[in-house]
């Protein structure tokens, strides 16, 4: 079946067929699941919350799609949108790269935060976006997240953070490292205010984000099979000079080792979060 689809795609590519159906088969409309190798029609994938209908693999989501899945329609109001990338090190090519990405992805930074409703429950929602420099945290990301936390404190709302990140953003050097302190200190204030913080770890959550706000939730959820860790697998393999065991640093591994509360499939995520919020407002 997979082979058939590939054949079809190839044929469609080769021949200059003009009818709509054939055009639909153009390669851009299909994606291959890198877990089960199934070729999936993109629209079918998106209709299924970007989860492979064949094997259940959770594809990475843009912030835009994630917000659509979690926030009630029309309720998301962005905060901190005017906080944009800065270049403290004057690092060669950095701003050019950022501008190119903005142009290409229509995303302005690696996190989008806002107030919203989730099944009618008011909350502050922060969603990282792996399409923007691997979701890395520089000053703008740290600022936006801190502003979101402070908004939650001010409005006495629960905070929900969807994490996906390669870690601190290298191009902003030590300033990026300090965002770990900034965001974590803000979480301490949220705790003092007695407000709920749910952190959701998605594929991949690593480095400085794991070593700051991502690991500090009152409740930490994760999507199935997400890579979650401090050091990246390649770095660990180089250090210990061994291949890592299958499933190392995946959600299931973290659950087993006691670092997350629950693995939640994408189809159940909104409902689970809404229920947890309700349990904290009664």
């Amino acid at each position: 079946m997979v082979i058939d689809k590939v054949k079809k795609v190839n044929e469609a590519e080769k021949s200059n067929v003009r009818n709509e159906k054939a055009a639909d088969m153009m390669i851009g409309k299909w994606v291959k699941c890198d877990a089960c190798k199934e070729i999936i029609y993109k629209e079918e994938l998106h209709a299924n919350l970007s989860v492979c209908p064949n094997c259940g693999k959770h594809f990475r989501l843009s912030a835009r799609r994630r917000i659509k899945q979690i926030a009630d329609e029309g309720t998301f109001k962005e905060i901190g949108k005017d906080i944009l990338t800065t270049d403290p090190l004057e690092f060669k090519g950095y701003m050019k790269k950022v501008e190119g990405l903005r142009e290409k992805t229509k995303i302005d930074e690696a996190v989008k935060c806002g107030t919203c409703e989730i099944e009618g429950e008011k909350a502050v929602l922060g969603v990282m976006d792996g399409n923007f420099l691997m979701g890395s945290m520089g000053k703008a990301v740290g600022e936006r997240i801190t502003l979101a936390i402070e908004t939650a404190i001010k409005k006495k709302l629960p905070l929900i953070m969807f994490c996906v990140s390669g870690g601190a953003r290298m191009q902003e050097g030590i300033i990026s490292l300090m965002q770990m302190a900034k965001t974590s200190s803000a979480i301490a204030n949220l705790n003092k205010a007695g407000l709920l913080y749910i952190s959701v770890l998605t594929d991949p959550t690593t480095g400085g984000v794991t070593a700051s706000f991502a690991s500090l939730g009152d409740i930490i959820l994760a999507e199935p099979k997400a890579l979650i860790g401090f050091a990246g697998p390649r770095v660990i393999e180089q250090t210990i000079k061994q291949k890592l065991p299958e499933g190392f640093q995946r959600s299931e591994f973290l659950l087993e080792h006691g670092f997350i509360d629950k693995i939640v499939e994408r189809k159940d995520m909104k409902e689970t979060i809404a229920e947890l919020i309700r349990l904290h407002t009664k």
């Binding site: 770990m180 302190a181 974590s184 200190s185 794991t210 070593a211 700051s212 706000f213 991502a214 690991s215 500090l216 860790g229 401090f230 050091a231 770095v235 660990i236 250090t239 210990i240 890592l244 190392f248 640093q249 080792h257 006691g258 670092f259």
Partner: peptide
């Protein structure tokens, strides 16, 4: 960046200290 460090929550330990 070791195997045991990850098993015992290196990221969580650093985050909590900060």
């Amino acid at each position: 960046p070791g195997l045991g460090a990850e098993e015992r929550g290196q990221g969580e330990a650093i985050a909590r200290n900060i």
